[in-house]
Amino acid sequence: MHIAVEEEKCVGAGQCVLAAMEIFDQRDEDGVVVLLDAEPPEEQHAAARDAAAVCPAAAIAVRE
C-alpha cells in the first residue's frame, strides 16, 4: 500500500488522525495533514482506507 496526501486540498479537519493515528498527524498552526508513514504495515491498511474515506476534502489517496 502507498499513501499520498495533497496538502493543498487539506482543510485540517483531522478526521484522518482520528481514523489512523499511526499514519497521519497535523501541523499545529493550521491543521494541515502530516503523513507519518507513506507505506504502512498490513495491520494498518484498513485504518488507512477509512482515513481516506472520511477525509472531507478527499485529500488522501491510497494506492494498493
Binding site: G14, Q26, D28, E29
Partner: peptide, 11 residues
C-alpha cells in the same frame, strides 16, 4: 481556535 492538535486531544 488555532490549536488544532490540542483540541483534537480534548475531543
Amino acid at each position: 481556535i488555532n490549536m488544532v492538535r490540542s483540541v483534537r486531544a480534548a475531543r
